[in-house]
Design a protein around this nucleic acid. Sequence first.
DNA 1: GTCTATATTTAGATAGAC
DNA 2: GTCTATCTAAATATAGAC
Lengths: 169, 169
Amino acid sequence: MLHEKGVEQTTLADIARAADVPVGNVYYYFKTKNELVEAAITAHADNLQAMIGALDELPTPQDRLKALLNSWIDQRELTARYGCPTGSLASELDKRADGLDEAVARVMRDLVDWAAQQFQEMGRDDSRELAVALIAAYQGISLLTNTFREPELMAAEGRRLERWIESLA
Amino acid sequence: MLHEKGVEQTTLADIARAADVPVGNVYYYFKTKNELVEAAITAHADNLQAMIGALDELPTPQDRLKALLNSWIDQRELTARYGCPTGSLASELDKRADGLDEAVARVMRDLVDWAAQQFQEMGRDDSRELAVALIAAYQGISLLTNTFREPELMAAEGRRLERWIESLA
DNA sequence: GTCTATATTTAGATAGAC
DNA sequence: GTCTATCTAAATATAGAC
């Protein structure tokens, strides 16, 4: 729900209704709304870690990066509707005074670090810059895909990034 | 203020205080908060149009695109603090039920269209895809620059995109 | 056109029975 | 652990004097 409507627009009443419990009940599990959001970020981080773990099974860094691209393309319909979960969270939480933005920043950094490691294994000494460029390309095309509601933008950019990765070898 | 704190987090009280007028006064100029936000989007769109108009004075499409990159780099400190105004607006307004997201989409589309025109003048038949990739790269690096609060990310990506544009000729 | 005061609504949060 | 009822605070919006 936080992905679909954002943190601000999602009320505890929304969450309670989705969980089919009365509103007051939510406070038995989370003392504040911020605590609930924090738990959601942690859950999202765990999902990403699991995904990265699966990618690490692949033999070469090129395979792993291309598999990441394909997972992005597979998610294009969802992205067109709601954007990238990590990116829209980062964008929204940055505007708030609470410290939740740091939790999202860590998630984003983990992803960049993982990508940098792949480029390094490909023998690139500009691995960090390439990783930032790759994740930025994904975040940006997610935003455009969402803004224009055109899933095919993600697919086209994914194919372009694939050619780019191949050209780096 | 909408850029700094976002639409949701900026209250009419904030705006009234910044304008040094009482809260009720704002309603003399804008019937609703949404109307005020719409006016801000229009003003932002006008700013971008003026900027594009200035770029159009430059002789070649390469010059114009590189000048755009440099303006992004010049804004890196602001971007690190608050992100790209257009991008963070697009991300936030997408989550809301009102129709304001379409106004931002138009702003974003104008920018993509302008970039596509430059690539077309460079003789590229994939001008649309390149334009989407360029604006996506900017939106993405804006998000990362903001999330990590590292202005230098924008500078490095700007230089990388400059080399990329030169390689397309 | 500007101001004060206030109405309305909604969301986050709490109290206490069961 | 679950539920109903309620409190509180804040933000949008309005009324009406000046």
